[in-house]
């Protein structure tokens, strides 16, 4: 198990684009029975018609919505545009199934037709980084731009890489997005279960930079742990956090009873369905929601599949605590 504590990495904004939920405080409750799918055209149109959506895949459209919300929430975007220099904002996106719909559509076309039957507009979408680059292009975000497609730990890994690049100074601030669309191939990958069909976002920022622009700090990213063994991961997170845990976001699947006795457990994959690459970011957003409603201790976020891959964990604390 490897771990690393981050000095001065704070969360200054969130964006929630989920069926029936648009704020961090609503994440924990999960998807409500009557919740409608996210209407991206309505959200991005703001009354008018947003051109440019027509050729964007579902994942990118969802990411656009969460990106807008998070950048505005963090005070980085106003109606007049970015409030900070464009090269100080990076983008880190996590998704596993994001562009699969385009990929299989092309395969289906080539089953009976030639390459002449394909659309040139699909070129950016057959590349796995289409969400990360599209978000950067929409807002002119010229910082480092990372696309993480790393299985079920992917969302927490994305936050970890943002924190690492903040520590080295490669980044000043970054929009971290987790997105998984509900598409036909995504459903088959998830044994027929309905995927998240949503996007969530965090703005993570160098604390000094956040202070300098007067940003409100919503949470701190204390550190990460990654390796084999959920119990070992949680032990590393405990060693890094001065505050006692008040909530534990557990991975999908069975979790040993004896680990962290008495600490409330949350399984967001039960609340929202399979979240795949979005899970880790969703857990962090839920933590921000918990801090906003008064939680005073640490929140542990964990994801992964110990049998086949690894467990990743992050510890988040409220803005006032460490």
């Amino acid at each position: 198990m490897r771990s690393h504590a981050y000095p001065g990495v704070v969360v200054t904004g969130t964006g929630v684009t989920l069926p029936g939920a648009d704020r961090p405080e609503a994440v924990l409750a999960g998807r409500q029975d009557h919740a409608e799918p996210v209407d991206t055209a309505r959200l991005l149109g703001r009354g008018g018609r947003y051109r440019g959506l027509r050729y964007k895949d579902r994942a990118t459209q969802l990411a656009y919505c969460a990106a807008d919300a998070a950048l505005r929430d963090a005070g980085l975007l106003s109606d007049a545009g970015l409030t900070v220099p464009a090269d100080t904002v990076g983008v880190v996106v996590s998704s596993n199934t994001g562009n699969l719909d385009t990929v299989v559509r092309v395969v289906d076309t080539l089953r009976t037709g030639t390459t002449d039957a394909l659309s040139p507009m699909d070129l950016p979408k057959v590349s796995c980084n289409v969400v990360a680059s599209s978000v950067a292009i929409k807002h002119g975000l010229r910082g480092p731009n990372l696309m993480i497609c790393n299985g079920s730990t992917s969302g927490l890994d994305a936050v970890r890489w943002a924190a690492t690049m903040l520590e080295t100074g490669r980044l000043t601030r970054a929009l971290v997005l987790g997105v998984e669309p509900d598409t036909e191939p995504a459903r088959t990958l998830l044994d027929g279960a309905a995927p998240l069909d949503g996007a969530v976002a965090l703005v993570v920022e160098n604390e000094a930079a956040a202070t300098a622009r007067g940003a409100r700090v919503r949470a701190r990213v204390g550190g990460h742990a990654r390796g084999a063994g959920l119990a070992a991961c949680v032990a590393e997170l405990s060693a890094m956090a001065a505050a006692d845990p008040v909530a534990w976001h557990v991975p999908r699947g069975t979790v040993p009873e004896g680990v962290l006795p008495g600490v409330p457990r949350h399984d967001l994959t039960t609340a929202w369905g399979p979240c795949s690459g979005a899970l880790g970011v969703l857990q962090c957003v839920a933590a921000v929601g918990a801090f906003a409603t008064g939680a005073t201790g640490a929140v542990y976020a964990t994801a992964g599949d110990d049998e086949r891959d690894a467990t990743a964990g992050l510890v988040l604390t409220p803005s006032s605590g460490r």
Partner: peptide, 10 residues
């Protein structure tokens, strides 16, 4: 290996 990462930047 357990600290493994797939980075998909085109």
């Amino acid at each position: 290996a357990t600290d493994t990462h797939t980075v998909a930047n085109a």
